[in-house]
């Protein structure tokens, strides 16, 4: 009986897999991109660039993802008079900008935490400012960032469940549909939805642990 129900439910949820995964990948790419842009801008010597980036980071870190999602959902067509073509873009932009703000702090912090002696040694070898960043600071900082990038990617996966609230047909959306037609099946349906997300999270958990061991190895006090 239960087995039959699982066999019924799983293929239904599978229909939402494409949306969940594409939203995750696209928003992660935006988030990583924003993280490096904003993280580096906050270390800029130019105070105006620093202030503008700081505003972006604090606004997105200071409010909720769900509020940002709804706000963008209504604001983008109203304020700019454009339709993005689909809510898919709204979801991707909201999640990407939100986690880009969080990750930019990771980028900034990692770069700042590369020991001062590393810069001094690079100067003593007559490296230019750009070479110091490219050859010495950045490779070490990126190693340090890996675990946090992994953790935040798992957070992003969790965040993608919100896009069902703006009508995207993701895994949770199909779960909700099934529940609304078969209330007594709700426990099994939501349990399976959770299992579904967990299966998607497993490779990310594995990558995060991998990143932890790389970051431990890569940056010892040299």
């Amino acid at each position: 009986m239960k087995i039959n129900a699982i066999i019924d439910i799983f293929p239904q949820l599978l229909k939402g897999l494409g949306v969940t995964v594409t939203v995750l990948i696209a928003s992660a790419l935006i988030a990583y991109f924003m993280a490096f842009i904003a993280g580096l801008c906050r270390l800029s010597n130019n105070i105006i660039i620093r202030k503008i980036t700081g505003f972006y980071v604090e606004v997105f870190r200071g409010t909720s993802l769900i509020v940002q999602l709804f706000w963008l959902f209504y604001a983008i067509p109203m304020l700019f008079g454009i339709q993005l073509g689909s809510n898919w873009w709204t979801g991707v932009i909201a999640i990407g900008l939100n986690y880009g703000a969080y990750l930019s702090e990771v980028v900034r912090g990692s770069i700042q935490s590369v020991a001062k002696g590393q810069t001094e040694a690079a100067i003593a070898l007559n490296m230019s400012r750009f070479q110091r960043m490219r050859i010495i600071i950045f490779p070490q900082a990126v190693r340090m960032m890996l675990p946090e990038f992994g953790n935040y990617t798992i957070q992003m996966l969790k965040g993608t469940a919100l896009v069902s609230l703006i009508g995207l047909k993701d895994v949770l959306y199909y779960g909700d549909i099934m529940r609304s037609t078969n209330l007594s099946q709700a426990p099994l349906i939501y349990l399976l939805v959770l299992v579904f997300y967990f299966i998607l999270a497993l490779p990310l958990i594995w990558l995060t642990r991998k990143g932890e061991s790389i970051s431990r190895k890569g940056v010892a006090s040299g």
Partner: peptide, 20 residues
Amino acid sequence: LRDVRGDIGMVFQHFNLFPH
């Protein structure tokens, strides 16, 4: 600075090797 310091090298108290 880069033009002038090219002939100077330095060894530090805490080595400052590049760990990566």
